[in-house]
Computed example of a mutant assay.
Amino acid sequence: MSLRGLILAVQFLTRLPTPQVKDFRDDDLSRAAVYNPLVGAIIGALLAMPLFLVADRPWLAGVLTLLLWVWVTGALHLDGLGDVADAFGAAHRDPQRFLEVLKDPRMGVFGVVTLVMQLLLKFVLLTELAASPLWSGIVLVPAWARWGTLWWSQRLPSLHGAGMAERFSWQLGPRAMWLWALLLAAVSAFAAWPLLLALLLVPLVAAWWRRKLGGVSGDCLGASIEVTESLLLLSLVLLGNL
């Protein structure tokens, strides 16, 4: 672990200002991936601010948090979700056709509709979360979702051979993944117990990708992050009053 790796992880996953890193190497992205959950927690801490500051106005808290979420991540994972939705919509269960459509930079109706529904879902869930006793769990939601990238990259092959998913797994060992799981689980058990669902949800996402495509791409990782975040928000909202 190094400061260089943390800076690269922040640069890749967010729009937050960071010092410039010189002499970027191909394996840097994989080495930096170990910081993904920490970067997720940083994102979550930023998202907690509007939920706390305007909690008495849930709709305003929800929309401000969503706007901040989209900005701080640069819509990186939303882009992956839209691309994957387009590919599934046009593939007609043909894996080769899926990969062809996935490479097309244009956004089709399947992607647009999926993004609208995803943003609407997150807005509603954030509005509900603003009034929930477990609102502070928002800090851990992006952290768990980005922990998922470590699991998916190690458990699934890359669809593109040398694509983003493959680059994540080059230098990544299981030790860091399990240490992050233990840390996030301990904090979640204390602060927001419904998020322990992530320990089941992340492997289920991996199993779904394996059955559907046999592997993942960078877009698949982004889509998985978005879906995982929404499901974890849903768990906080539905189980927060139990």
Rank of each mutant, 00 (worst) to 15 (best):
A87G: 02
A87K: 01
A87W: 04
F88V: 14
G89H: 00
G89P: 03
A90I: 15
A90M: 15
A90V: 15
A91C: 11
H92P: 01
R93F: 12
R93K: 11
D94H: 00
P95C: 08
P95A: 06
Q96E: 15
F98L: 04
F98I: 03
L99D: 05
E100H: 09
V101E: 11
L102C: 11
D104C: 05
R106P: 05
M107V: 14
G108L: 13
V109S: 12
V109D: 02
F110S: 03
G111P: 06
V112H: 04
V112K: 08
V112I: 12
V112N: 00
V113S: 06
V113M: 10
T114V: 11
T114H: 03
L115V: 13
V116E: 01
M117Q: 10
Q118N: 07
L119Q: 14
L120K: 08
L120R: 09
L125W: 01
L126S: 02
T127R: 12
E128M: 12
L129H: 06
L129G: 05
A131C: 12
P133M: 14
P133Y: 15
W135Q: 04
S136D: 03
G137T: 05
V139C: 06
L140S: 12
L140M: 15
P142W: 00
P142Y: 01
P142K: 02
A143M: 05
W144I: 10
W147E: 02
W147L: 13
W147H: 12
G148D: 13
G148I: 10
G148F: 08
T149N: 15
W151I: 13
W152C: 12
W152V: 05
S153M: 08
S153V: 08
Q154F: 06
S158Y: 02
S158C: 09
L159P: 14
H160M: 10
G161Y: 01
A165E: 11
R167C: 04
R167D: 06
S169F: 06
Q171K: 09
Q171I: 02
G173W: 09
G173S: 12
P174Q: 13
A176S: 04
A176D: 01
A176Q: 03
M177E: 13
W180R: 12
A181E: 06
A181K: 04
L182N: 02
L182Y: 04
L182G: 14
L184A: 01
A185R: 09
V187F: 07
A189N: 01
A189H: 00
A189T: 02
A189W: 06
F190A: 15
F190P: 05
A192Q: 12
A192W: 13
W193Q: 11
W193V: 10
W193P: 08
P194E: 07
L196G: 02
L197W: 09
A198E: 07
A198W: 09
L199A: 10
L201K: 05
V202M: 01
P203E: 10
P203S: 08
L204V: 14
L204A: 15
A207C: 11
A207K: 11
W208A: 13
W209K: 07
R210H: 15
R210V: 04
R211E: 07
L213T: 07
G214F: 00
G214I: 01
G214M: 00
G214P: 04
G215F: 00
